[in-house]
Each structure stands twice: as structure tokens, then as C-alpha cells.
Nucleic acid binder design. Sequence first.
DNA 1: CATATAATTAGCTAATTTGCTATATCGCGT
DNA 2: ACGCGATATAGCAAATTAGCTAATTATATG
Lengths: 101, 101
Amino acid sequence: MDELVEQTKALASDVRLSILGWLKEPGRHFPDQLSGDPEEVGVCVSLIAKKLGVSQPTTSRHLELLRRAGFVKVRRIAGWAFYARDEAELKAYQRRLHDTV
Amino acid sequence: MDELVEQTKALASDVRLSILGWLKEPGRHFPDQLSGDPEEVGVCVSLIAKKLGVSQPTTSRHLELLRRAGFVKVRRIAGWAFYARDEAELKAYQRRLHDTV
DNA sequence: CATATAATTAGCTAATTTGCTATATCGCGT
DNA sequence: ACGCGATATAGCAAATTAGCTAATTATATG
């Protein structure tokens, strides 16, 4: 149950819901990523920060929260950190939420 | 989206998840309610407070939060306030969450 | 090796949340 | 009208969260 609360907290934020929404179609929402195909590797922090309109460190913390909750995974290449959804975990969460509440 | 965040915040609490869980089987979890059948009218605040182990005012606030989120409805009879799940709204929320995240 | 770029971590402030106690309010019975 | 029981509201303190800037780490490049 504790884990479920932590995951729910991770979703209880407009900023983080936006991020997860955008990452459903990374190519559409981040077409100007030069360092790699968003659909393939994920989206880097700076682009998400820019789209959110908040600072890059703040964005980094939101992403870390989502990662600890299991909803996104990171792939580090060179200096970049590319974030992508973890669809399996998102599904698992919704199933567990459905069973609990 | 804003409404979705508010509802998610309402769920992001161990106390409130416990309440919603108990209210799935009110008769089982609150068998000693004298003032009315839990399955019929809902569960009164004091019994929930006692089971939670927090004060009555604190419980009242959690319930008000859940009510504003739409997840429970109140039925006031005499001096009591009986709380019960709003299954339709809970379903609707999960559907909307599924569509968004 | 120095610089530049990307991200994270630290450290701070302001706002929100959660608990409590004390104080209303509301309906019923005497 | 008065008092009693059940809730709700007010007001306060502690903890958590979200934002920022500044500093650190890591990697590539001149």
C-alpha cells in the first residue's frame, strides 16, 4: 500500500502529468531534439524544461520523482539523459490502483 | 486536467486510501455501527476516526477532501454524517486517468 | 588542459498539507 | 429553553513540496 501511495503522489502534480502526457508521443511534442530520435531514445531534460517553462533543475527533480515511482526510465548517453515512459509499470500501477480503491 | 490533479491528490494519502478501501465493505469493517446499517447508509465519522487512530476533526477533514474530489457522498441523518463511496465517480476517475497518463 | 554543455545536487524560501486542541454548529430529547 | 452527542470549522505547529539560484559532476571538444 505504501508503494501505491508513493506512486499516486508522483502523479498528483500538473507538471508531472504533463510530462507523462507528452512522453506518450515524444516525436510529436519534441520534434526539435537534435541529439537523438525522441521515439527511439527518449527526451532529454532541457527540452522538457523548456516546454514546461520551469528551470532545468526543477525539471530534473520532477523526472527523478517519476523515475523513483517507476513511471519513466532513463537512458544516459554522453552528457544527456533521455527519459521515456515505462509502459509496463504505468499499466501495473493502474491495475493496482483499480484493485485497491 | 486540473480536476484530474485535484482528484489524484485526494488519493495520494495512506489515510484516504485506507478509508476508501474500508468503504468497499463497510459492513465488514464497521460491524459495530449502531445508528444504521453501514451497507445501507454509509459509515459515520467517529467510527472511521477510531479505526484510523487519528482525531475526529482530522478524519472529518480527510472525508471532506474525498467528498470535494467526488469520491464519497454524505448522507446526513439526525446528528450523524454517513459517508459512502461514489462508485460512478471512482470509475470515471480511473477512466480519465487511464486516458490521460 | 581548459572550456563548454548537460544534468544533478545543495541550500534556500514560500506554499501546501497534516496533525492537534479548542470552539462552533446542528439536531434531538428532556 | 437547555444540555448532549456528533460533526464541522478555526487556528496553530511540524512536515512536506515546489520553485529558484549557485555549485558540482561528467563528458565531449578545441
